[in-house]
Design a binder for these strands. Structure first.
Lengths: 353, 353
DNA sequence: GATGAATATCAAAGCGCTTTGAAAATTCAA
DNA sequence: TTGAATTTTCAAAGCGCTTTGATATTCATC
């Protein structure tokens, strides 16, 4: 059933049917009701393709999720981010186009999506230190929002980010307050911008207390469980092992915990952990006293808000509202104390048994 | 730059340009080359919307991923499944449309996607025991592939599944061979079909050895880390605790492991675990001797093969090849021994210390 | 009852591509 | 050299919708 047939069936022009269904005012309530009923009865839905060709809008947003070219991995936190964004898109009648693409092909992918007019807007995930996707998209002139920031990009753009520096500065501060001096940082991939902001926060807190930074205690990699395990195991076997770990995600933190217990040490007593908690739905760090002490920021909420921001940008552009200052949201992480942290005094005492 | 402009620029008709770019034979090599070059220079890409309207194909596949309505969770294994499928789609020039929708809205979503002609095919995820999406899609007459099966659906349909029954029968058999008699099963949501097949395999293995099934040792829920932890903790505190756990995913298994060590028991010695391993990229159960003994089947490969199957079905339909028997692939899981299993004799001896 | 404004409907053009059926250009055989 | 066969190109129709500009209808006003 298409528009033509429906109009014919009703003995009304296509114009009127189209207007009736799209809520235009220049159609009488009587006909509007008749049209609505007929559409319902015959289960009529306008063809998306025809509609988007006619309107010039495709009512779709693309998320290009990077797949690590080395390891062919796709980060599970995207699942929650996309769930949040998808919710918002569904509400507004947008579709979500997902491309899983090796980092190296991102440029071509974005260019393609834009020049083929596949989508009305884009979300950029996991920006690197100087991410050339940002100038590229700005150049292509399509609305986009970055989840995170790219320190090396000077031009202004729309982004939504967590205050990673502050979060990690606070987390480090907490461990310092507990007396820890050898604090390991298990960070994400060194190419990613957020990892640098986290390092910055960590280092700033240490330097403020005049503690020299030991590069041996800093690791960068894909945030898998196994990475957490292997690095923690190695570090704990050192002559002067860390008494605390700051871990960029709950997933490697699970590995760190495993390494701690494997080494016969007591988690949260002899060795402390603070994590960045994305509030992943399958890894809720919940409970009265959650397992991990954490700086928490829901990635699902980030997805939802990034999507809302993008839709707002698109709306404004369509209404011809002049491009004002770019939209930028900085979310603060909240610190919650769990079972994974304790004073260093105790841990040293125990370790000396 | 659109087709008309490009054709005008070349002083050639749109027809010829279109044919040249789409590789039709009725165009001379000389003009084809000229057209290709010009397209390259002016960065011309045909508009997806116009193309799909003209051809009737939208070159897109939808995956509707269920979000648990109770808990608003989205399963991280979809990330890997979709990565596998996305790879295949990209290769064939298809887009992936992702809808994250509460179970209750699936019907409407599917109906919408089809009647609005948004996609050429669909993948059905996480089928329930008698999943009404299958007859619905068959009725709508659109190509689709089910990841998993639905026991209550009698009509034939295209699916790709792991032999869950066999896998769990083997896994249970292994634990029985090791002398375990109290074996707990931590399954997925009871509404999902795969959970029943796994239960079946488990029960069959027990009954074959005349071991009565203790419903107290069977749990069903969303496969989170916390679920594994809580259930295992409760079971281990029982008067007659299990000596082994069969766990439906590596994620709750991590929780089970936590409960075991929390209880002061030795993982892999006093209490054994066998998992179903989806080979998730961020939770690789790898190494010379992997952490968990597992029946493994890569969900990423499943995604890739399901996508390939769907594209083949679409291809056949387009070429007017008569609808033959539906396509069905049953993948066998492979059993690998890890550090998480040991004989019961030892575990009992230890437990009695 | 005539006039103008407001309201309701319509026919037709256009979105950017593919594809059909016809025409033009080229090749080949006689 | 000519006519048929073949190859190459083209103009125009059509995909299913929205939207423009025009027309028909209703209503209030003088």
């Amino acid at each position: 059933m298409n528009l033509k047939e429906l109009a014919h069936k009703l003995g009304i022009s296509q114009t009127t049917v189209s207007r009736a269904l799209n809520g235009y005012p220049e159609v009488s309530e009587a006909t509007r009701r008749k049209v609505r009923e007929a559409a319902e009865v015959h289960n009529y839905r306008p063809s998306l393709r025809a509609k988007s060709l006619a309107t010039g809008r495709s009512m779709a947003i693309a998320h290009v999720v990077p797949v690590s070219s080395k390891h062919e991995m796709v980060n599970p936190i995207f699942a929650d981010f996309i769930a949040g964004a998808g919710e918002e898109y569904a509400r507004a009648g947008y579709e979500l186009l997902l491309s899983v693409v090796a980092d190296s092909d991102h440029d071509r992918m974005y260019r393609d999506l834009v020049t083929r007019k596949a989508v009305d807007g884009l979300v950029v995930q996991a920006p690197t230190l100087t991410d050339n996707r940002i100038p590229l998209l700005a150049d292509l002139g399509i609305p986009f929002v970055v989840h995170g920031r790219s320190s090396g990009v000077v031009s202004a753009y729309n982004w939504l980010d967590v205050n990673n520096r502050r979060a990690f500065e606070r987390a480090t501060g907490l461990l310092l307050d507990l007396g820890h001096r050898r604090i390991a940082l298990l960070n994400g991939l060194a190419t990613l911008d957020f990892a640098h902001r986290r390092s910055d926060g960590y280092k700033r807190a240490l330097l403020e207390r005049s503690i020299t930074i030991d590069p041996e205690l800093i690791a960068h990699d894909e945030m898998t469980e196994n990475y957490g395990y292997e690095v923690a195991r190695r570090m704990l076997a050192q002559p002067n092992p860390p008494t605390a770990f700051l871990v960029s995600s709950i997933i490697p933190a699970i590995g760190v915990r495993r390494a701690i217990t494997d080494a016969g040490l007591e988690f949260g007593r002899e060795v402390s952990i603070v994590i960045h908690d994305d509030d992943l739905s399958y890894f809720r760090n919940a409970g009265d006293v959650p397992l991990f002490t954490a700086v928490r920021s829901s990635v699902r909420e980030a997805g939802q808000r990034a999507a809302a921001m993008l839709l707002e940008i698109i709306r404004r552009r369509e209404e011809g509202i002049a491009d004002e200052a770019p939209m930028q949201i900085l979310m603060e992480a909240e610190l919650t104390i769990g079972q994974s942290t304790g004073p260093r005094a105790l841990s040293r005492a125990r370790a000396q048994n």
